[in-house]
Computed example of a mutant assay.
Amino acid sequence: MPLIISTWNINSVRLRIELVAKFLKATRPDVLCLQETKCPDDAFPLKRFAKLGYTHVAMSGQKGYHGVAIVSRLPFEATATRSFCDKQDCRHVAVTIGEQAGLKDPATLHNFYVPAGGDEPDPAVNPKFAHKLQFLDEMRAAVDLHPANGARSILVGDLNVAPLEHDVWSHKQMLKVVSHTPVECEKLVAVQQAGAWVDAMRAHVPPSEKLYTWWSYRAADWAASDRGRRLDHVWVSQALGDRVSSMTVTRAARGWTQPSDHVPVTVKLEM
């Protein structure tokens, strides 16, 4: 059966719930992974999602900052969260989708929001950047992010790093800008290699082509300047490496009224 998964840093789920509804009505993914929900669990708009047909929810939220959630039309077999860097800042949630959802073999889905890292790419003077680097190191070391042979796993989210040359509008000008510095790129690639993850987005858009999922609010005309970055990612385990039949970046969402600075990414997996 096909499994359609979308991921989107929504930058406040309650503020932008109508944009989420617009996207869900148009795209109808089976599962939507959200980052930066900025919402404690007891205030999450469960009723609105239920009206849209998304009655299964796993979340890890806090007031005003961070937060991740997975909303689904399909039931979960299990849910889990974990913390990194000895902080309880709601940056990970995972679910297992299996027999109850019609899958013969279960699949685990991880949803991440990696720290942005602040503005100064020097861990000695910027604690936020030091936190980001430590977070990436702990992701690389996390055994549950190393899918065993044959394991069907998916990792999505705002990983806040644009690792490849054409994941940013100007490789040379971005080398000293947080999200594309060499140390960040090396650490994110190390996470990917440790788990032998397949970059599902770049399997459909060659590394030689520009690919963005984020455009700054600071741009007077984001579309005209097109100074984007690919901060949002979809990775799949080796067992699913040849099962991603399509990948779409909903660039138009950046132009919606009061948008997030990120746009949704959707993949279809032939499970």
Rank of each mutant, 00 (worst) to 15 (best):
P2I: 12
L3A: 03
L3T: 03
I5H: 01
I5A: 03
T7K: 04
W8P: 03
N9M: 15
I10N: 03
I17R: 11
E18I: 05
V20F: 06
A21W: 04
K22W: 06
K25C: 12
A26H: 04
T27H: 15
R28M: 13
P29D: 01
L34A: 04
L34F: 12
L34R: 00
Q35P: 02
E36D: 10
T37S: 04
C39D: 06
P40H: 07
D42Y: 08
D42S: 07
A43I: 01
R48T: 14
Y54R: 10
Y54L: 09
T55H: 14
A58H: 09
M59F: 02
G61Q: 06
Q62V: 10
K63R: 14
G64M: 08
A69W: 05
A69C: 03
I70L: 13
S72Y: 13
S83G: 05
D86H: 06
K87M: 12
V93E: 01
V93M: 07
I97M: 09
G98D: 08
G98Q: 07
Q100E: 14
A101N: 08
P106R: 09
P106I: 11
P106W: 10
T108W: 12
H110R: 10
H110E: 11
Y113G: 00
G117C: 05
D119I: 09
E120A: 10
D122Q: 07
P123R: 01
P123H: 01
P123W: 05
A124T: 09
A124V: 13
V125S: 12
V125Q: 07
P127A: 03
P127R: 03
K128Y: 01
F129A: 11
A130I: 08
Q134C: 10
Q134F: 04
F135P: 02
D137A: 15
D137G: 08
A141R: 07
A141N: 01
D144T: 14
P147H: 09
A148R: 15
A151I: 01
R152A: 03
S153N: 08
S153L: 15
I154H: 02
L155G: 12
V156N: 03
V161H: 10
V161F: 09
P163D: 06
P163L: 11
D167W: 07
V168C: 03
K172Y: 06
L175D: 14
V178K: 07
T181R: 10
L188W: 09
L188S: 02
V189Y: 00
A194T: 08
A196L: 14
V198F: 04
A203G: 04
H204R: 13
P206L: 13
P206Q: 04
S208Q: 11
S208H: 02
S208R: 13
K210E: 14
L211H: 08
L211Y: 05
Y217I: 06
A220G: 00
A220E: 15
A223K: 14
A223W: 14
S225E: 15
D226M: 11
R227L: 09
G228S: 06
D232N: 06
D232S: 15
H233G: 07
V234I: 11
V234L: 04
W235Q: 14
Q238I: 04
G241D: 01
R243S: 13
S245K: 06
V249T: 11
T250I: 09
A252R: 11
A252G: 01
A253R: 06
A253K: 00
G255H: 02
Q258C: 12
P259M: 08
H262G: 04
H262C: 05
H262T: 05
V263R: 00
T266K: 05
V267T: 02
L269W: 02
E270F: 00
E270R: 03
M271N: 05
